[in-house]
Design a protein around this nucleic acid. Structure first.
Lengths: 166, 166
DNA sequence: AGATAACCCTAACGATCGTTCGTAATGAGC
DNA sequence: GCTCATTACGAACGATCGTTAGGGTTATCT
């Protein structure tokens, strides 16, 4: 709170004309984060091939991190300091997000775009883990979409080099 | 410090017969983490193919996380609360670890085990990101090596299914 | 002009936190 | 048996933290 006030050029006490408590501010930031990540998934057209959806999901996730780095950092790292119902709510939103991503991989497998023996849970875990860590290294200035596409290429076609070209 | 004392069944003040400060304790834990991760890489035989080294590096990383979950969590998440030279030291260790992993991918590319156009920086970033996030979901009871191998399979052969068979 | 809401200040509160201090019990080595 | 290091205790310290209270200024609306 002291740091926050300082960076706003204001006294600590003055903050409470805008927020009701530190815990409330944390919750509001978390809600913002949850909404941003879900909105990124919502923006993906339904009729696209599953692999294309996965590519756009990666782009969307990294874009949220890049454009709202502070919110994303809080969303990813500070949820354990929420208390009570609000904590449960945010944890559920995280879980729902993970489920939506996993559904993309399942769809890709079922439609034959991805290998039929794909372990979609592990695939989603791998992809989401990499994406969740992005807040630690992502530089908002760089071309985030291109980076997401490189990740997509590695994940889908692999690193070995006998995969489909292009 | 209060929680730590409580979980040790001891008064807060008694802790200072064993450590000299909270900051020192943090540093010692970080050193333990850095040593564990580097030791995991040290244990990989030099003469193996690069891809096999990558597989073992993934195994080693996840095993450190699983077997020393508390130390790994601190190492991955709390380094920013170190101060001064010690912070610089640990940051350098993290950097060195990343460089060592990246060298494995470069070796794989140069020896032709991985695609010749592989972006080894991105490959290492993707792999390390996933590995670094593991402390949030890894369950020490499960078969960590098998999980690491599944990650390895996805990363190296991809999810699309036209890659080299198993 | 007067009322009202929005915003900020200063000062202080109670709680928590890391740490220190004086003291005491325990056990190993000379 | 005396010494001394180790470990623990309980109480207190100074600092920091989130929050509240009282008062003041400014701009908007009636």
């Amino acid at each position: 709170m002291g740091d926050l006030a300082k960076s706003l050029g204001v006294q600590k006490g003055s903050l409470y004309a805008h927020i009701s408590s530190k815990q409330d501010l944390l919750y509001e930031t978390m809600r913002e984060g949850a909404d941003a990540f879900h909105a990124a998934l919502d923006a993906i057209p339904d009729e696209l091939p599953a692999t294309e959806k996965i590519r756009l999901a990666l782009r969307g996730h990294l874009r949220v991190v890049a454009e709202q780095l502070d919110v994303a950092t809080v969303f990813v790292r500070e949820w354990r300091y929420l208390e009570g119902d609000r904590r449960a709510e945010i944890v559920a939103e995280r879980r729902r997000y993970e489920d939506r991503v996993r559904a993309l991989f399942r769809e890709g497998r079922e439609l034959g775009e991805l290998r039929t023996d794909l372990d979609d849970a592990t695939a989603a875990l791998l992809s989401l883990s990499a994406a969740n860590w992005a807040y630690t290294w992502l530089q908002p200035g760089r071309d985030t979409d291109a980076l997401a596409d490189r990740f997509y290429g590695l994940l889908v076609d692999g690193m070995r080099g006998y995969a489909t070209p292009g």
